[in-house]
Every structure is written in C-alpha cells, then in structure tokens.
Simulated assay, not measured.
Amino acid sequence: MDRFVTNATRASNFLKAISHEGRLMILCHLVSGEKSVTELEELLSLRQAAVSQQLSRLRLEGLVVPRRDGKTIYYSLADDRPRRMLETVYELFCKDS
C-alpha cells in the first residue's frame, strides 16, 4: 500500500507540474532539443523572470535538467516522461479526428 501511495503522490506532482500552460509550452519546446533560457524567452514571448520561475518548478519535479556554458544556462528534458505525456496530449487534443 505504501508503494501505491508513493506512486500516486509522484503522479499527482507530475500532473500539477504540467498543468500550467507556460510549463507545458516549455516542455513542448524542449522535446525538439536543448534550449537556452534566452531561446525559451523568445519562443514563449515571456520575460526571463517568468521563464526562470517555470523552469524552477520543472527542475524541482525532475522534468528538466540544466547545463551551464559560461553565463548561458541550457535546459533539456530529464527523461522520456514529458515526451510520452506530450504525445498523449497531442493524441487527445490536437490530432484531427
């Protein structure tokens, strides 16, 4: 039973993390590969503070990982979970029937 509760908590945290439109869009952009914070700002038309706040939440949930190159920070997907989830979202909401 403890394992079930632990898995339910992990799943709930994952769903909360992707329930924000900005975080979901960040994950969508990272599916195609690593992006710098500046690139994400431009792609999302958001200020650096807003992008950084959303990346912080995604990092906390273990969905993205940072890489520093000098003063530039790049982010990529931590594993395949977001990609698989986005494929499901696409099938449910974006694919023409």
Rank of each mutant, 00 (worst) to 15 (best):
D2N: 12
R3G: 08
R3Y: 15
F4Y: 15
F4G: 02
N7P: 02
N7D: 14
A8D: 11
A8L: 15
A8T: 04
A8W: 08
A8Y: 09
T9Y: 14
R10V: 01
R10Q: 13
A11W: 07
A11F: 12
S12Y: 15
L15D: 04
L15P: 00
K16D: 13
A17P: 03
A17V: 08
A17K: 00
S19H: 09
S19F: 07
S19A: 12
S19P: 03
S19D: 13
H20D: 15
H20M: 03
H20S: 12
E21L: 05
E21D: 10
G22S: 06
R23G: 03
I26Q: 01
L27D: 02
L27E: 03
H29A: 02
H29V: 00
L30G: 01
V31W: 08
V31Y: 10
V31C: 11
S32I: 01
S32M: 02
S32D: 10
S32P: 00
S32W: 07
G33E: 03
G33F: 08
G33L: 04
S36K: 03
S36G: 05
S36A: 04
S36P: 06
T38H: 10
T38F: 13
E39D: 14
L40R: 06
L40H: 09
E41R: 09
E41A: 01
E41N: 12
E42H: 08
L43F: 11
L44G: 03
L44Q: 01
L44Y: 05
L44E: 01
L46Y: 15
L46I: 00
L46A: 06
R47L: 06
Q48M: 08
A49G: 06
A49W: 10
A49V: 04
A50I: 07
A50L: 09
A50N: 06
A50S: 15
A50V: 11
V51C: 05
S52F: 03
S52H: 08
Q53K: 13
Q54L: 01
Q54S: 13
L55K: 05
R57D: 09
L58D: 01
L58Q: 00
L58T: 00
R59V: 05
R59M: 07
E61S: 07
G62Q: 03
G62W: 02
V64P: 00
V64D: 00
V65K: 12
V65Q: 06
V65G: 02
P66M: 02
P66Y: 07
R67D: 04
R68D: 11
R68L: 05
D69T: 08
K71T: 08
T72P: 02
T72I: 13
Y74V: 02
Y75R: 01
S76V: 02
D79H: 15
D80N: 10
R81V: 12
R81I: 09
R81Q: 06
R81S: 13
P82F: 01
P82R: 05
R84D: 13
R84F: 06
L86P: 04
E87N: 11
E87H: 09
E87L: 11
T88F: 15
T88R: 12
T88P: 02
T88S: 13
T88H: 14
V89N: 02
V89T: 03
V89L: 15
V89F: 15
Y90P: 01
E91H: 12
E91K: 11
L92W: 14
F93C: 10
C94K: 08
K95P: 05
K95I: 00
